[in-house]
Nucleic acid binder design. Sequence first.
DNA 1: TATGATCACTAAATCGAATTAGTGCAACGG
DNA 2: CCGTTGCACTAATTCGATTTAGTGATCATA
Lengths: 317, 317
Amino acid sequence: MGTRRVTMRDVAEASGVSPATVSFVLNDVTEQHILPATQERVRAAARELGYVPHAIAKALREGSSRIVLLALPQGIRGPGLDAYTRGLDDELARHGHVLLVRHGSPLHGGLESVVASVAPRAVIDLSGLYQHEAADAAAGPVTTNDGGWVDGLAAHTLVQLLHLVRAGHASVAVALPEDPGWARLAAVRLGFARQASVRLGLAEPVVLTVPRDKAAAIQAVRDLRRDHPGVSAVAAFDDAVAMQLLAALHGLGVTVPDELAVIGFDAVEYGSFATPALTSVHIDAGAYGQRAARTVLGLEPPADPPAGATVVVRESA
Amino acid sequence: MGTRRVTMRDVAEASGVSPATVSFVLNDVTEQHILPATQERVRAAARELGYVPHAIAKALREGSSRIVLLALPQGIRGPGLDAYTRGLDDELARHGHVLLVRHGSPLHGGLESVVASVAPRAVIDLSGLYQHEAADAAAGPVTTNDGGWVDGLAAHTLVQLLHLVRAGHASVAVALPEDPGWARLAAVRLGFARQASVRLGLAEPVVLTVPRDKAAAIQAVRDLRRDHPGVSAVAAFDDAVAMQLLAALHGLGVTVPDELAVIGFDAVEYGSFATPALTSVHIDAGAYGQRAARTVLGLEPPADPPAGATVVVRESA
DNA sequence: TATGATCACTAAATCGAATTAGTGCAACGG
DNA sequence: CCGTTGCACTAATTCGATTTAGTGATCATA
């Protein structure tokens, strides 16, 4: 319990050199000439004593820690985000940094206080993407850098609608989640869907917001089919919305894809469990995470853009 | 860009006092007598200059940062864990700490290296709960503290099975996920289900592992019904498994709950979208997170145990 | 043989805040 | 009028690692 931490000074004393020398040896400082024999002594002592460099002291000297903070809003989850996070994390790990995720909480005084108490190397704040506008860039190293993910969404939305056009649909609806947490991203996606519709010669897409309550969802779908009988396919915001839609359609007795086709987004594996199995768009979100990592670290982003989206064809469209 | 950070020394000079005095004022050190007028000058200068204490320097002095690290394995997600995390975070926030989540990655050299580079006040390592045995407690402040969550699981599993017994079922199956990431927790849950069965006078529960592939899942359910025709209800590991089960049952043409009842666990809201709507067990996971927070901070845990589980009765059981 | 270059290290300052041990001054008691 | 106490502060040290500016010693060159 009470055993004090092993410091560089301890290692220095144990190996009969100065702390400076220990630092040079342990950090492989090439500008300094240290006898191989001495190096070995120092390393041995460090190993023996179980020396672990004190990250905070190091961070104080370097000016910031090797933490990169990813700020996310409260309840936002999803396979795309998971993959993005993993890509980010892996790339960061390759450069000796650590990704830590901060889930927003109303009890904290906002991101600034967290940033202040962590002093991260960089902050990737994605909360603006989901809720309000990007926060004021007042304090420190906060970026809304997403590695081009939102831009990529435009292309991916095009792929989603293209699949519908290829299958012969001429009038489609876009299904959006009701959850206000997704509101902003939903608006962005809708904008891209509109642009894609123009490019593909589709009619202006009808917007369908899918309520969380099943009865209400059924009602919403019923209204859609009454008001827009020409709509023959629905492009969903994500697979979760698509599956809610499928459930509502099942409740209404509408056959999918014959009467109405449904295509998801993000290709979760349990989409195959839906009835009928959900057709969806797969995205290489990890690549965007990787790009974001390289950008915040000040590295050259990979020349080749992330792979495009692909359609996972199952049964629903 | 190049503007250097405002330090305590700057505030001291601006208000004509020593850095020590600034520290006393800004930290409300009551043992020191500082004239109210001086205090006001210092505070004004701090405000004016936009002084923000340097967290790393503070952490170096205090010995550790005010970060609490929650270590989770790679792909583990779920509503229970979300609620747990939120409870943890909120309680930590009340005591001036920040929760940061670390998702395991094979690229990092394990948790120790992350702990070394973050120097958190405490670490809550839940990865052992899901995968291997609790890691060696070698380095620092790592706890497998879960606030009694796993223990609570025993009672909650009892509630789940009790609902089935009350509905007249005498022989049940337990449905477990195939994903190896959940293997350990699944084993724990199965153990509790066995204990509960004994207490409730049920037959030894049959184990059903639900494959991720739909066709395989259907086959597994078919086998179950052939080999154990007496089984009239299934208690699922969580709602995700329950919904896969429901889909497989639908594919087989088995009516729920008449031919086979299904009850989930964790009560996700989209369970209401299943056909039939999923009956499930709701758990106050947030309370366990709160307990965990108080424990790692060395505070008195709340006297009253977390609220028990409740059954959200819908249609499937 | 003096000059300087190279080698193998060390002393001391630095990062920014917290804290212990004072210091000078005024008021008060005996 | 001297000693003590209380007040309002300050100087200096500490936390642990990094880094700049050296310091002797050895070796080579002119």
